[in-house]
Amino acid sequence: MTDPDSGRARVQGFDTVGHGDQVRARIGLTGQYASVDELLTGRENLEMFARLHGLTTSAARERAEALLSDFDLAEAADRGSRTYSGGMRRRLDLAVSLLREPDVLFLDEPTTGLDPRSRMQVWETVATLVREGTTVLLTTQYLEEADRLADRVTVVDHGRAVATGTPDDLRARVGGLRLDVLVHDPADLDRTGELLGSALGAAPSVDPPGLRVEVPVTDRVRALMHASHALEGMGSRIADLDVRRPSLDEVFLSLTGHTTAPTETVEAVR
């Protein structure tokens, strides 16, 4: 455990400085880059780390076998892990960090650089672990991932926590819903904005390159009814009309006020 620059951290009540061994016995860790031994096979990696975790030889063998099949690695188990694809390596790494069913699992950008299918598999695994009682603390740059996995999200901007809460809390901070209207012809944007503004009693914002007018609203059904009534005369000049919740990307931008370095910490607590 590295000494902190300042402050202190406790895991399950144990201080990371004074009780490093207690902490190590309770955590699992998967870094951004898979830290498995590339010269060993998947099975050898799991068995070696299981032995280092203090499992007996036979328990280590059984546990490795079980995790290999859980993580869809049974077929590649006896191949050198350096021949694995990025997704397989990440899965092996995740399996290694779960050898001893940790109370707290730390995942540092677990899906960075993964293809959509592997990302989905990692998400499902994390969701299962959380359901079964593991506390997962993960960092991610993908706000969609945070939205999907986390019970509590902390937004970190340039090393400072700028907001903490459930994804819905954070959304509520930047306002409830958005009414989006798309048009075919940029010439119609201003007219659409005026109609929506007077019908809904809120200031519209116009996005010319997106051919889009956006209005903050509170009630989904009322907004849709008023808007369609107001825009009736424009007929087929309207391309699309929808009410949506703000994405966490928008939340992030409005919380930080800029677009650079969106680093974010997510806690999926149970």
């Binding site: 079980a66 499902e124 079964e132």
Partner: peptide, 25 residues
Amino acid sequence: MNTVTAAPVRAEHPALRPGPAKTWS
């Protein structure tokens, strides 16, 4: 992959400061 079925081994935590036997193994 979808369900983690491997038998739990949470039981008790290993000797906390690794003794000579753990160091040797």
